[in-house]
Simulated scan of single mutants.
Amino acid sequence: MALVTFLSDFGDQDFYVPAVKAKMLAINPQLNIIDLSHRIETYDLAHAAFILRSTFRDFPKGTVHLVAVNTTGSMTQGYIGVKLEEHIFIGPNNGIFSLLADKEPGIMVQFAEIHVQESSFPAKDILAPIAAKVASGAAIHDFGGPLQNFRKLMPRIPKATKEQITGHVMRVDRYGNLITNISKELFDKLNPGRFTIEFGRETLDRIFSGYDQVEPGDCFAFFNSSGYLEIGINHGHGGNLLGLRFESVVMIHFKF
Rank of each mutant, 00 (worst) to 15 (best):
L190H: 08
M1Y: 10
H87N: 13
I140Y: 01
F15T: 09
F254D: 09
L45R: 06
F50M: 04
F208R: 07
F220T: 11
T76P: 01
H65N: 06
R57Y: 00
F223W: 05
L147K: 03
G95W: 00
N94D: 11
I165N: 01
M108Y: 01
D212E: 12
I157C: 00
N70V: 00
G167S: 05
D14A: 11
T76G: 07
F199I: 06
V17P: 02
F121A: 09
F59W: 07
P122G: 06
H168M: 09
E85A: 11
G95C: 08
Q213A: 14
D12R: 10
N234A: 10
K255F: 09
D12K: 07
A135R: 02
E198W: 00
G239P: 04
I33R: 03
R57M: 13
A138K: 13
E185Y: 00
R151Y: 12
N177M: 10
D9K: 03
T180M: 06
A135T: 04
A68W: 00
N224P: 08
G106A: 13
G210H: 12
G91D: 07
D218R: 14
F97S: 05
D102K: 14
F111P: 02
N224C: 10
G91Q: 02
S248P: 01
K124W: 03
E86C: 01
A138F: 07
Q30F: 06
A2N: 15
I80R: 02
L242P: 04
K159Y: 09
P105C: 11
L45T: 08
D125N: 13
A19L: 11
G137D: 03
K21T: 01
H235D: 11
N149S: 14
P18A: 05
S8R: 05
D142N: 15
G210F: 13
T72M: 11
D102G: 15
V64W: 01
H253T: 09
I33F: 05
F199W: 10
I179M: 12
S226G: 12
G145K: 11
I233L: 12
D205S: 15
G11M: 09
L7A: 04
F222D: 06
L242F: 08
G210L: 13
L25G: 02
Y43N: 07
F111T: 02
H47Q: 15
K21P: 03
E185L: 09
H65W: 07
I179Q: 11
K61E: 15
Q148P: 00
P216Q: 10
V64I: 12
K61L: 10
I126H: 02
L45G: 05
Q77W: 00
G73N: 05
A68T: 14
S119F: 03
A123R: 00
K184W: 04
N93L: 06
Q77D: 13
I231W: 01
C219I: 00
K159Q: 14
P155S: 09
S54G: 05
T161E: 12
G193Y: 09
I51L: 15
K124G: 02
I233K: 06
H87K: 09
G11D: 05
F223M: 09
A221T: 07
F10N: 03
H168D: 06
Q213R: 09
H253Q: 14
I182H: 01
